[in-house]
Amino acid sequence: MNELTTFLHQKTTAVLEETLENMAFVSIEECTLEEATNLKQPMLGVNLLITEPELLEIRLDVSKELLYQIAETMYTMDRDELSDQLINDLLAEILNTLAGRFMTVILPPESDFSLSIPELADDEESTSEFKFNYIAEDLPLSVEIKAAEMDNLNSLLNN
């Protein structure tokens, strides 16, 4: 792992841990892409753009089963009461919180940033260098950081 990948991985892991523990009392463990893939779970993905100070995209993919488990706990509802809309909203709010924390921890306190409204991902998951895989409750999830230009990511590291 190069310096940039290590930096992004550490920050992503820290904010994902904090977000899921606070929102859903769920703890995560890091895993490899192979370990995550071997679990063969249907996934649901959501994207969010960071429009300032650099144009970046953060994507979160979570096992549908894990989302349902989190929603059952958070909403104290039975599975058959949980609508697709509620599950999608939960996924979007996790990413929204995660992205905000991510930018807060990587930028200096005085730096401003802007987030777009999260949107469900309609394309396949990719396997880029900045995709980090995790397991929670024996189910997979991943976070991927994308940038149109490598310079955008490098400038974050230099902040």
């Binding site: 977000t19 606070n22 905000g100 924390r101 940033f113």
Partner: peptide, 27 residues
């Protein structure tokens, strides 16, 4: 209560009259 908060934004919102500013995730 926001996911897009930082010190600069918090200061601006307080100056505008917000009672308080909290960053998500809240507890």
């Amino acid at each position: 209560i926001t996911s897009a908060g930082n010190q600069a934004k918090t200061d601006k919102l307080l100056e505008m009259g917000a009672f308080g500013v909290l960053n998500k995730p809240i507890n």
